[in-house]
Simulated assay, not measured.
Amino acid sequence: MIKLQNAPSQARAKTRMSGVGRVLVAVYGVLALAATGRSFVQIVSKFDEAPLAYALSALAAVVYIVATIALVRPGVVWYRVAWATIAFEFTGVIVVGALSVMMPGLFPHDTVWSGFGRGYLFIPLVVPVLGMWWLATHRPVPPVATGAV
């Protein structure tokens, strides 16, 4: 019977939560709270004024929540979830940012990603680039077969 060792994977994953990784998680946590609060207020009070913009703000909130959790959790699966959410976020910031600049009538009210995150000091544009760099340099080590019976 082949036994899998998880220790290297877990030890390596913990290093993601050091230095810049902690700052990254804190920024994602703040973005998650801000986007959640903003989208909740927008949807409850004036959804009919800009449903696309407010739905995108809610989507951004969900993405930030999942990214925050994925960055904190150890393991290969959470690492992949972090990559997926951060890549999705970056794509959203670029697409929504470009559309909001080229077709401002499409977004009568700002979203989190409008103007490439202008309302959030462009942090939504910068943080996924930092996140992708961090993930690329802090890959988890997959479990290793030991051959023990």
Score class of each variant (00 low, 15 high):
Val77Trp: 15
Leu33Thr: 07
Ser39Cys: 10
Leu33Asn: 08
Leu56Tyr: 01
Val93Arg: 07
Gly29Thr: 05
Val112Ser: 13
Ala87Asn: 02
Glu89Asn: 08
Pro128Asn: 07
Glu49Trp: 04
Ile123Cys: 01
Gly19Tyr: 12
Leu106Trp: 07
Asp48Thr: 13
Ile86His: 06
Val112Asp: 12
Ala145Gln: 03
Trp78Ala: 14
Ile69Pro: 11
Pro124Ser: 02
Ala145Asn: 04
Gly147Tyr: 01
Ser39Leu: 12
Met132Gly: 12
Thr111Tyr: 00
Phe40Cys: 07
Val41Tyr: 14
Gly105Ile: 00
His138Lys: 11
Ala60Ser: 13
Ala145Leu: 05
Leu125Arg: 11
Leu71Phe: 15
Ser57Cys: 08
Val81Cys: 00
Val23Asn: 04
Phe122Thr: 05
Val149Pro: 03
Leu31Ala: 11
Pro51Met: 06
Pro128Leu: 05
Val101Ser: 10
Lys14Tyr: 00
Ala26Trp: 08
Ile86Arg: 01
Val25Cys: 07
Ser39Gln: 10
Val20Thr: 15
Leu24Cys: 11
Ala32Thr: 06
Val77Gly: 09
Ala34Pro: 02
Val27Trp: 05
Ala50Gly: 04
Ala55Met: 05
Trp133Thr: 08
Pro142Ser: 15
Leu99His: 06
Val62Leu: 15
Arg73Ser: 05
Val62Ile: 14
Ser45Met: 08
Trp78Tyr: 15
Gly75Ser: 13
Asp48Phe: 07
Leu56Ser: 04
Leu130Phe: 09
Val44Cys: 09
Ala136Gln: 10
Val95Asp: 09
Gly117Lys: 02
Ser114Pro: 07
Ala58Ile: 07
Asp110Lys: 08
Thr15Asn: 03
Ala87Tyr: 00
Leu56Ile: 01
Gly97Ile: 04
Ala13Met: 08
Val93Thr: 11
Val141Glu: 08
Ser9Glu: 14
